[in-house]
Amino acid sequence: MSPMRLRRSVRAVILNEDDHILLCRLVISKPAGTIAVWAAPGGGVKPDEAALAALRRELHEETGLVIDTDPPHVWHQEVIDPGHAPGHDGVINDYFLVRVASFHPRGAMSDDELAAENIVAFRWWRLSDIAGYRGPDVFSPRDLATPLTALITDGVPARPVPLGL
Rank of each mutant, 00 (worst) to 15 (best):
L163F: 07
S110Y: 11
I67N: 02
R134E: 13
D137L: 08
A36N: 09
R25A: 07
P105T: 02
L65T: 02
P136I: 05
M4T: 07
R134V: 10
R159L: 15
D48Y: 15
D94P: 12
M1F: 11
E62C: 00
L6H: 07
L59Y: 00
G42E: 03
D143L: 06
V27Q: 07
I119W: 02
T69V: 10
E58Y: 01
T153R: 13
V100L: 03
H76G: 14
I130N: 05
A32V: 06
F103H: 06
R56S: 12
G135Y: 05
A131W: 03
H20A: 10
W124S: 07
D94S: 14
N118C: 09
V66A: 05
R123S: 12
V37M: 08
G132P: 11
R57C: 04
H20N: 13
V37Y: 02
P105I: 02
F96V: 03
S128D: 11
I152N: 00
S140E: 08
A150C: 07
D154V: 03
L144M: 13
A40I: 00
V138I: 10
L23P: 03
A51C: 10
W38F: 10
A101V: 09
L127W: 13
T149Y: 10
S2G: 06
A40Y: 04
P41T: 03
D70Q: 15
V156E: 15
R134N: 12
G33M: 04
W75T: 10
A36G: 10
P162Q: 13
A53R: 06
H20K: 05
E61T: 01
G43A: 01
G132F: 11
H84Q: 12
G87A: 11
A115N: 10
R7G: 08
V45I: 15
E17N: 11
A36E: 15
D137Q: 13
W38I: 09
A50N: 05
D48N: 15
D143N: 12
G43I: 01
M4C: 07
V79I: 15
T63R: 00
G87Y: 08
P31F: 01
F103N: 08
M109T: 01
G42K: 00
R123L: 11
